[in-house]
Structures are given as C-alpha cells and as structure tokens.
C-alpha cells in the first residue's frame, strides 16, 4: 500500500500567453482513484500538469497532500509522483536498456528484460532509440510505469501512438496501480474503457 491517501487541487489559475487557463479548477483524488481530465485542444490539459509539477507558475491555487496544504508543492510532489508527458523523456543516443538503467540504476537487468517482454519490446532491448517507431518509443517511456514505485501517476495523453493491445495492457496496469492504493491523474480526449474514473472537464 502507498502512503498517499489523497491529493487535492483547489482554485488553479495559470496565465498562458494571452489567456487565463484552468479557471479555478478544483478536484480531489483519494487513494485508489483515477481522475480523468478531458477537454478540447488548448483547454489546458498539459498546462495543468506543468502547473501541478511547478514547471509553470500558479497565479492562484493550492495543492494538498493527505489534507495538508503544501508550502513548496513541487518539491513535495516530485518524490511521490511519476510524470509522463508529450516528450518521451528518453535520450535518443542511447539504447532502450541504457535509457532504463539511467532512470532506474537500482534495478537489475533481469527486471528490465521482464518488463520489456511484457511490452513486447524484448527484440529491441539493445536497439538505439533512433531506430524505433513512435509507438515503440512510447512503450519504452511507459515502461517506467512498470518499474517505478511512485504512488501518484501523472499521465498526459498516455494512449498516443499505442495499438489496441497495448492500450488494454496499460489499462490493466493502471487497474493494478489503483488497487494497490495509488492515485492516477490522466489527461486524454479518449475515455477509459474498462476502469472507473472521476471525470473532470476543463
């Protein structure tokens, strides 16, 4: 079980170029819940994650963890959350294996091999990222979900470029995570197929 019981966001307001986004967005996610953020392009889905993680300054708004308002939200959230955004976050000059062992130096190689096998990427373990397709790159990026032990997952459009099998695999993995008491916040314009979720419209 994870130590995070709840994550509450209240009154978010972010200035982005010419307009204010997220007008007063508020929601609360308890342990074992999925929050699904949806909205049209440009509604501020990615902006929300960036504001949550402190990459963008908040004009207004608070973040609370387990009912306590965080004074320095970014610092406190980073150690508990895993963010996968539009950029895959992988070093293109390295192989798949090298990228994974860069992120998780404490894990043994056999663990990587298992995860890659599950994502049907075993054949590409030693391939350089430049040779992979967009969907394969996404898989490597998502492999971090299998390897990480962070309780809060922040996923920005996780289903982009994935095929049907992998989408259902990912949903199964998400089900595991929430049943273990994790929290998932994901932004997508597609609804989840098999999982219960709390819907937040931007």
């Amino acid at each position: 079980m994870y130590s995070v019981a709840s994550l509450t966001i209240s009154d978010f307001l972010v200035e982005r170029g010419e307009s204010d986004l997220l007008n007063g967005l508020s929601f609360s996610a308890r342990s074992g819940e999925i929050v699904h953020i949806s909205g049209a392009n440009g509604a501020g889905k990615s902006t929300f994650f960036k504001a949550l993680l402190g990459l963008l300054p908040l004009l207004n708004g608070t973040i609370s963890l387990n009912g306590e308002v965080l004074v320095r939200p970014a610092q406190s959230l980073l150690s508990k959350s895993l963010y996968i955004g539009h950029g895959v976050g992988l070093n293109a000059a390295l192989t798949v294996m090298e990228n994974l062992s860069w992120y998780f130096p404490e894990c043994h190689i056999s663990r990587f091999q298992l995860v890659l096998k599950e994502l049907s990427m075993s054949a590409f373990a030693e391939a350089q990222l430049q040779q992979l397709s967009a969907g394969q790159l996404r898989r490597v990026a998502l492999a971090r979900l299998w390897l990480s032990d962070k309780p809060i997952w922040l996923l920005d459009e996780p289903f982009t470029a994935l095929d049907q099998t992998l989408i259902s695999q990912l949903e199964a993995k998400m089900a595991d995570h929430i049943s273990a008491g994790g929290i998932i916040i994901l932004a997508s314009h597609l609804p989840l197929k098999s999982l219960p979720f709390q819907r937040v419209e931007l």
Binding site: Y83, G85, G87, G89, N91
Partner: peptide
C-alpha cells in the same frame, strides 16, 4: 537541444 525536444530536460527537472 535534443534533450529539450525529447522531454529529457523536463524529466531532469522533475527527477528530484
């Protein structure tokens, strides 16, 4: 440059 485009820099900032 490449780290910026690939989102590696974002992950470095968020690495803690």
């Amino acid at each position: 440059k490449e780290n910026y485009v690939d989102g590696v820099l974002t992950q470095l900032i968020l690495s803690g």
